[in-house]
Computed example of a mutant assay.
Amino acid sequence: MGKECSVTINYQRTLLQVLIILIFIGVKYLSSRFAQGKKHPTFWWALTAILFWLLAWWNFGLYWSAYPVAVWMVLALVLIVIQLVHNHEFLYRRYWPPFWRGSAWLAIISFGLSLFAGMLPLV
């Protein structure tokens, strides 16, 4: 008989994480409503990245979370090289917005993949 692959997802943890994400979205919405003139999009991208990195770490565990962080670090270095080649200088003011935007997207993807972390072997 062949081996069957079973997907194990901790539904209680996933529901709690979705609730945390919804609370974050609510806080972001309320803060944008009360601070209409002041916009800080880089701040919200950074908070989004941090939230999703923490949630992915919660699912992956200490061992497997090192892989997305390594990819994140390589992409940060690639962004620095791109800025140096394109602008012939490195300026933090130009670096931080795309860095946090890319970090947030990578963290969201890592979180999505981490939902299936129950299938990863224990090391």
Rank of each mutant, 00 (worst) to 15 (best):
L51Q: 03
F116R: 00
A46I: 04
M119R: 09
S103W: 01
A56N: 10
L120F: 14
F24S: 04
L75I: 00
V71S: 01
I109H: 00
W64G: 00
W64V: 10
A35T: 13
F60Y: 15
V123M: 09
L120S: 05
P98E: 04
L30W: 03
L91Q: 12
T14K: 05
I82C: 00
S110Y: 08
A49G: 08
I82E: 12
E4W: 10
E4N: 06
R93F: 08
A76K: 02
I109V: 15
L77Q: 07
I21D: 02
P121H: 00
Y29E: 08
L106Y: 02
Q17Y: 07
Q36N: 11
R94K: 12
L106T: 07
L79W: 08
L47R: 01
I21F: 06
H40G: 00
V27E: 05
Y95M: 10
W72Q: 11
T8Y: 12
I20M: 08
S110C: 10
S31H: 05
E4K: 09
S110L: 08
A76W: 11
L15P: 03
Y67P: 02
S32T: 05
Q17P: 03
F34Y: 09
G61R: 04
T42L: 06
L19T: 09
S31Q: 12
L122E: 13
E4P: 01
I80A: 13
R93T: 13
F111S: 04
P98W: 04
G118L: 08
V18M: 14
V123Y: 09
H88A: 13
I9D: 05
R93S: 13
W72I: 05
F99E: 03
H40L: 08
Q83R: 11
S65G: 01
C5W: 12
F116W: 15
W44T: 07
Y11H: 07
E89Q: 14
V27F: 01
L22A: 14
Y92F: 14
Y67M: 06
Q83I: 11
H40R: 09
L79T: 05
C5F: 14
Q36K: 12
V7C: 04
L84Y: 14
Y95R: 04
N59M: 01
S114G: 08
F24L: 02
I50K: 00
L54H: 10
L79S: 13
P98K: 04
S103G: 14
G118C: 06
P98M: 10
G26F: 00
Y11F: 03
A104D: 08
V81S: 01
M73V: 15
Y92S: 05
L113C: 14
G26H: 02
H40T: 12
K3P: 00
V85A: 11
I109N: 03
A104N: 04
W105R: 03
H40P: 02
F111R: 02
T42E: 07
V85I: 15
L84R: 11
C5R: 06
Q17D: 14
